[in-house]
Amino acid sequence: MFEATPRLLVISPHLDDAVFGCGASLAGASRPRVCTVFTALPANDLHTDWDAQCGFTGALEAMTARIEEDKRALGVLGAAPYHLGFLDSQYAPDASESARPTRDAIAQALIDAIDEHRPDALLMPLGLFHSDHILVHEAACDAWLKRPDVPCYGYEEGLYRRMPGIVQQRMADLLERGIEATPYNPPLPAAAEMQRRDALKREAVRVYASQLKAFGDDGYDDVFMPERYWTLKLAEDRR
Rank of each mutant, 00 (worst) to 15 (best):
M63V: 09
E68Y: 09
S30I: 11
G55L: 09
P42T: 10
D70Q: 10
E68H: 10
P42G: 05
G28K: 01
L60I: 08
A40D: 03
I67N: 04
D51A: 14
M63H: 01
A65H: 13
P32E: 05
E69H: 11
G58H: 03
P42N: 04
D45Y: 12
D51Q: 13
N44Y: 06
T48A: 05
A65R: 10
S30M: 14
G55I: 02
R66L: 13
L60K: 14
A40Q: 11
A59S: 15
T36L: 03
C35H: 00
A29C: 13
T57H: 11
D70H: 14
L46K: 01
D49I: 07
G58P: 04
D49K: 06
A52C: 09
E61H: 13
H47T: 08
C35Q: 00
W50K: 14
R33V: 12
A62Y: 03
T48D: 10
D45P: 09
D51T: 05
D45W: 08
I67M: 13
N44C: 06
W50A: 12
G58R: 03
N44T: 06
E61N: 08
R66V: 09
L60V: 10
A40M: 03
A43N: 10
F38H: 01
G55H: 10
R33Y: 02
G28E: 15
Q53W: 14
Q53R: 15
A52N: 05
A29K: 01
I67W: 02
T57M: 12
A62P: 01
P42R: 03
V34D: 02
F56G: 06
E61V: 01
V37L: 01
T48W: 08
F38E: 00
E69V: 04
E69L: 04
A65M: 09
P32V: 07
L46F: 12
V37R: 00
T48Q: 10
D49H: 07
A40S: 13
A65G: 03
D49V: 08
C35I: 03
T64M: 07
